[in-house]
Design a protein around this nucleic acid. Structure first.
Lengths: 91, 91
DNA sequence: AATCTAATTAGCTTATTCCCTAAATAGAGT
DNA sequence: ACTCTATTTAGGGAATAAGCTAATTAGATT
């Protein structure tokens, strides 16, 4: 079932941007850090909020941590919103 | 274009529930107030957050105020999320 | 085992959110 | 004009969110 925190998770513009970038494939925390004018600890906190919402998951490789988009949950969010608005999937 | 506040607006469970109930048609503030264990001023504040996000709009009739779901914006939210996640509309 | 790099956790401050009660406003009916 | 009902605005307090710097952890490398 859909974690209630997903809505809070997508409420922040940086977190939405992270999700958008992860569409294209896994990225390390460091790679993403380069994209934002924010301290690494603050960004790390955004990662953990996204993780807690199950929107992303982490995989360590050497001393890098790769973040991946969780498409299953992404789809669940969309389904929940479509249900909320009473909008059907197909055009 | 999509108001940035929509994400904050849908981040609260009561506001999501309001949207869901408005799917079925317009409701007055009073009708909705009956559904939640929250003061009327607090609920009124939720309405104004939803209004500010353009997710609902109000129409006065006598001394009732009817709230309506703005389906246009609802669709825009879905489109924005599908874009964010890189998910296509049709199955 | 010392060190380097990558990333997180701890601790703190400021801003925002969310709720409340009391007071004000808008319109309808008397 | 007064009053009743519906709803919002004002003001304030507690909880949560979001940022920072400094310190720590985890693993790789020498």
């Amino acid at each position: 079932m859909l974690n209630r925190n997903v809505y809070k998770a997508i409420a922040h513009p940086i977190r939405r941007d992270i999700l958008k970038r992860l569409r294209a494939g896994p990225k390390t925390a460091g790679e993403l850090a380069g994209e934002y004018d924010i301290s690494k600890p603050s960004l790390s906190s955004h990662f953990s909020i996204l993780k807690e919402a199950d929107l992303i998951f982490a995989r360590r490789e050497g001393n890098h941590i790769y973040y991946n988009l969780n498409l299953t949950v992404a789809n669940e969010v969309l389904a929940a919103l479509m249900d909320m608005f009473g909008i059907e999937k197909e055009t």
